[in-house]
Each structure stands twice: as structure tokens, then as C-alpha cells.
Amino acid sequence: MTLLDVSESLPVKVVCVGCGLGMSRNLASLGIHAGDIVSVVRRAPFSGPILVRVESTGANIAVGREMAGRITVETERHRDAS
């Protein structure tokens, strides 16, 4: 599952930012890393970017669709259970 498939405001965990070296560095410098809990806040019109919220800092990052499609995530089941 990638960030594109996540419904809004559902917290998910970033598994891997598998989109090439340069890109993962750029995402990391803005605060999105593998292992972070993030959620999709909203989507822009005209197949524009999506707004990603990093739960730990509360930072909001706009991520283009293509890039978002290469960020794989998983739902936080164990979090719901606990």
C-alpha cells in the first residue's frame, strides 16, 4: 500500500521511501522517514499533491502524487489493539 491509497486522517506507518536516493534524502530533510507515523490530511484538486502530516512533530508536508505513490506504508493495527 502506498500513501496514495490511504484514506484521510488515518494514521499509517511509513515502511519505506523507495523512490531513489536523492528523493529519500529530500523527504528525510523535510521530516518523512521510514518508521514515522504519518497521515494524509487532504488532497489537492486536479490530481495535485497530497498533504501529509507527520504525527510526531505535527509538521505538514505537501508531497507530489508521483512521489507519494512511491512511499509505501502500513496501517497501524497493533496500535488500535493496544
Binding site: 505538514n60 505537501a62 508531497v63 502524487r65
Partner: peptide, 10 residues
């Protein structure tokens, strides 16, 4: 164009 990647400050 590159994909957008930018911080949206409060």
C-alpha cells in the same frame, strides 16, 4: 517538472 515537495508551515 519535479513533483512538489514542500513544507506547509502553520
Amino acid at each position: 517538472p519535479f513533483g512538489l515537495l514542500m513544507d506547509i508551515p502553520p
